[in-house]
């Protein structure tokens, strides 16, 4: 009969209405700032620069090779290479970024910078509550803001970080073996300059 469907529909909505007051499972909304769902391990949004040890300037892995700057599709990385050199994690003297800016308002979180970096120096962070009242300056992050410790990297992406550590350890071992070989070949001569990092990274 006419109107039957309407009555049935009304009953259905009434059941939903009342049900939402008695059963918590019906209300699937997560009340965000108070309640949070755990983030997926692979979550990512903006890049950060990894440093080892305590001091962010001394431990910074980045050697200002500018590969990421060139690869970044929207061109949101700006790097200024240092004039002098500082020792890196392996004790070799390396350049370091005198300036390293990422404009996060332009960054599209593609992770390409992470993929191309040969030094495992740049990784993706998971912090997402980044709103600021300064539209330009507040979203242009300099190297100090970008620098985050290796411990932080381990905390947010444990699997990835373990893998990175393995790679770095393997590289270190390779570098040490090469140094040893070089020392063995020309023992009286002083320790030669270590090979170019890009070359060292080649498998």
């Amino acid at each position: 009969m006419l109107g039957e469907g309407i009555v049935r529909g009304l009953a259905e909505t009434a059941r939903n209405f009342l049900g939402s007051f008695v059963s918590k499972e019906r209300l699937t909304t997560v009340q965000f700032p108070e309640e949070r769902l755990p983030q997926a391990e692979a979550a990512r949004d903006f890049p950060f620069l990894v440093y080892d040890g305590e001091d962010w300037q001394a431990g910074m892995r980045c050697v200002a090779c500018q590969i990421c700057e060139k690869e970044c599709p929207p061109k949101c990385i700006f790097i200024e290479k240092s004039k002098d050199k500082k020792p890196d994690a392996l004790g070799r003297a390396q350049f370091y970024p005198a300036r390293f800016d990422i404009d996060v308002s332009v960054c599209m979180s593609c992770q390409i910078c992470v993929e191309v970096c040969p030094f495992e120096a740049i990784k993706m962070d998971t912090a997402f509550e980044l709103s600021t009242d300064d539209r330009f300056g507040g979203l242009l992050w300099d190297r100090q803001k970008l620098a985050l410790s290796d411990a932080h990297y381990h905390a947010i992406h444990p699997t990835d970080a373990a893998h990175t550590d393995e790679l770095l350890a393997a590289e270190k071992a390779k570098a040490e073996a090469r140094t040893k070989a070089a020392v063995a070949k020309a023992s009286p001569a002083p320790m030669p300059q270590p090979p170019a990092p890009a070359a060292a990274n080649e498998p």
Partner: peptide, 10 residues
């Protein structure tokens, strides 16, 4: 609020 409850929202 009523429509929300009907759709199981807050």
């Amino acid at each position: 609020k009523g429509l929300g409850r009907i759709q199981n929202r807050y």
